[in-house]
Nucleic acid binder design. Structure first.
Lengths: 334, 334
DNA sequence: TTGTAGGCGTTATCAT
DNA sequence: ATGATAACGCCTACAA
C-alpha cells in the first residue's frame, strides 16, 4: 500500500484549511496568490495526488469506461481495442479492460462488477446473443453499448459494428464474377451476428445468380488457425466441387491457406480464397490474400463516441455500421 | 448515472441494520438464518452490488492492477497483454489498461493518475530508459514492475523480459553457421533494452567468428511495416555485401520481406532472413519465415505473478528472463 | 478570501 | 445475534 498523504496533510503543512486546498486543486474558487503558491509547493513537495476513489465517491463520476471483449487476441479485435483506447485518451477517459474469452458466465459476472460504480459506462462485445440479463442494468441506468457483435433482441441498446452484410455480399459477388459457383465458407461460430449477417450477404449474392444456398458448404473453424485448418480440410474433402472459399477471420484465413497447401491444391487455380480482416502480412503470403478490409480503429473510435453519447443521453439507441471494402490481391484469382 | 440503491436501502427494506447487511454480504459474522434469507432476497430483488469505490476507500484495496504499455497493437505485446489478463482473472484481479503509444509524458501522467489509489500495483513497459521519475512512487510504496523493456538504472524495480541477449545470439549464430558474414539488422528503436540486448547477443556471436561489429549494418524500422520496408531498402542499397537480415519485430519482418521482393531479390537465396516474434502467418509466407519464437503469454502471466509478489513483499526485486527459441523454417536458407 | 462541517457508501469497533 | 457510529478522503454549501 502506498504511504498515504491526504488533503488534510497538505492543509496542515501549508497552514490552511482543507477546503482551501481543494479549491486550489480544482480551481473552484479564487484563492489569494500567496496561499495558492504555498499550497502548490506543498503539493509538489509530497507529490500529492487526490484520491480518485474518494473523489468519485463524492461526485459520482469515474472518468473510466469498462471494456468487455469476448475474444482476444485477434488482429480485428485488437485494432478495435486500440481505436477505443485512442479515443478514450483523447476524451480524457480511462479503460477497464476485461477479456471474457467467450465465457458467458464470466461476462455476466464482469458486468455485475462493473455496475458497482466502478465505471461510467460499458462497451460490450457479447459472447452470445443472449443479453436478457442486461435489461436490469439498463433499467438501473447503466450506460451500455455493444460493439462488433450484438443481440438483435435488445434493439434499444446502441451498437457499432462493421457492415457485415455488405461485406459478405461483396466478397461473394466478387467470387461469383470470377465464375465460381460452389463457394465454401469457413465461419468462426454460428450464433453470433457477424457470422449471421455475412452469411446473409453471401446468400443475397447467391440469389442474384440463382444459386440455391447449400448449408453443407459451411464449416466452423472456431476462430483459430488450427481449427480452421482442420475445418477447411474437412470441407474440401467432403465437397469436391468447391472452387472458392470465403473465410471469416484472419487467423482462420491462415489456417485455410495451410490446408489448401497440405491438400496439394493451388490457390487461386484450384481454390480461390477471400479472407476477412486485412491483417499485416496478407500482402506477402503466397499468393497475396484478397480480403475484406475494414478500419478496426474506426470501429473502436466510433464505439467510444457512441458510449459517450449514451452516457450523456440515456435515450440514445442508434445502430451504426462501419463500411468495409474489398482489398483485391491474388488469392481470388484476379 | 445508475440509480443508486445502497446498503442503507437494503437494510431499510429488510428491516435490519446496515451493519447486519454488511455482515451477510461479507460473511464477517454469524447472522441468524432467517435474517440472512430475508436480506439475501432483498439484495436479489434489487440486484444490489456494493459500491466498489466506497469499499476500497474503506479497505485500501482495489483488486485491480494498472497496465501501462507503450506500444500496441503488435502481436508480441498483444500476446503479453493477453497473458497478463488471463492470469489476472485467475487471481481475481481486474486490469486498468493504458496504451501510451511511446509518449513519455503521457506515461508519466498515467503513472501519476494510477498512483491515486486507483490500483494496487502497476505493470509498466517504459517508453524510454528514463525512469527517474518513478523513484518517488517507489518511495511512496506503490508496487511497480517492468515488463518487456526496462531501465537498467533502476535495478531495484522487478522486471520480466524475454531473454533478448540469447535471442540475438542464437539468431546471429544460426546465420553465421549458414556462412553469412555481413548480417544486416533492422531494429525498431535504438534506446530500448530489447534492442540493446539483442544487439549485444548479435555482437557476441560475431565475436566468436572474429567478425568486427559494423554499426553501418544497423537500420531503424520504427516498429512498423512501412518504415521497415523503407529502412530495409535503404540498408540493402547502401551495404551491397549484406547476405542476411535479422529483423527485430514481426510487423517489420513483413516490411522487410516486401522490400526484398521490391528490390527483385530472392529470399533466402540472395538475402536470408530471420525475424523476431513468431506471428500467425509466418508459416504461409513465401518463403515461410524462420524466426525467434517466444511465448508472449508466458511473459504476460509471469509479469502478473511478479507484480503480485511485489505487492505482497515490498522488497521483491527479482529480474526474470523468459527463454526464447529459434523456429526454423525456410527464410534462413535451411 | 477562507474555514466549518455534513455526507458520499462502506467496514469494523464497540456496545447491547 | 444485532445495532449505532466513527472513519476512509474528498467536495461543497454555508458561515464567517
Amino acid at each position: 500500500m502506498s504511504i498515504k498523504v491526504t488533503m488534510k496533510d497538505i492543509a496542515r503543512e501549508a497552514g490552511v484549511s482543507i477546503a482551501t486546498v481543494s479549491h486550489v486543486i480544482n480551481g473552484t474558487k479564487h484563492i489569494s496568490e500567496n496561499k495558492r503558491k504555498l499550497i502548490t509547493n506543498v503539493i509538489e513537495k509530497y507529490n500529492y495526488v487526490p484520491d480518485t476513489r474518494a473523489k468519485s465517491l463524492r461526485n459520482a463520476v469515474t472518468k473510466t469506461a469498462g471494456l468487455v471483449v469476448s475474444v482476444f487476441p485477434d488482429s480485428y479485435v485488437t485494432g478495435i481495442v486500440n481505436g477505443i483506447g485512442k479515443r478514450a485518451r483523447e476524451l480524457d477517459y480511462h479503460l477497464l479492460f476485461i477479456n471474457t474469452n467467450e465465457d458467458y458466465d464470466y461476462e455476466k459476472e464482469s458486468i455485475k462488477l462493473l455496475s458497482s460504480n466502478i465505471v461510467d459506462g460499458i462497451i460490450l462485445t457479447p459472447s452470445e446473443m443472449n443479453l436478457g440479463y442486461i435489461q436490469k442494468y439498463m433499467k438501473k441506468g447503466l450506460p451500455i453499448i455493444q460493439a462488433i457483435r450484438y443481440d438483435p433482441n435488445i434493439p434499444r441498446l446502441p451498437r457499432v459494428t462493421a457492415d457485415d452484410f455488405q461485406a459478405g455480399y461483396d466478397a461473394t459477388k466478387h467470387l461469383l464474377q470470377h465464375g465460381h459457383r460452389k463457394i465454401g465458407v469457413i465461419i468462426s461460430r454460428t450464433n453470433i451476428t457477424p457470422t449471421i449477417e455475412r452469411i446473409e450477404g453471401y446468400k443475397a449474392a447467391l440469389t442474384e445468380y440463382n444459386i440455391p444456398f447449400d448449408e453443407g458448404l459451411i464449416e466452423s473453424g472456431f476462430a483459430t488457425e488450427k481449427n480452421a485448418l482442420i475445418a477447411t480440410k474437412k470441407l474440401l474433402n467432403r465437397e469436391k466441387e468447391i472452387t472458392a472459399l470465403f473465410v471469416l477471420s484472419d487467423l482462420m484465413t491462415i489456417g485455410a491457406m495451410q490446408a489448401i497447401t497440405e491438400l496439394s491444391l493451388k490457390c487461386p487455380d484450384d481454390i480461390a480464397l477471400i479472407g476477412f480482416g486485412d491483417f499485416a502480412g496478407a500482402a506477402i503470403t503466397n499468393p497475396p490474400i484478397t480480403n475484406v478490409s475494414l478500419s478496426a480503429e474506426t470501429i473502436g473510435r466510433t464505439a467510444f463516441d457512441v458510449l459517450l453519447n449514451k452516457i450523456n443521453n440515456p435515450g440514445y439507441d442508434k445502430h451504426i455500421q462501419i463500411p468495409t471494402s474489398l482489398m483485391i490481391r491474388k488469392s481470388c484469382g484476379c
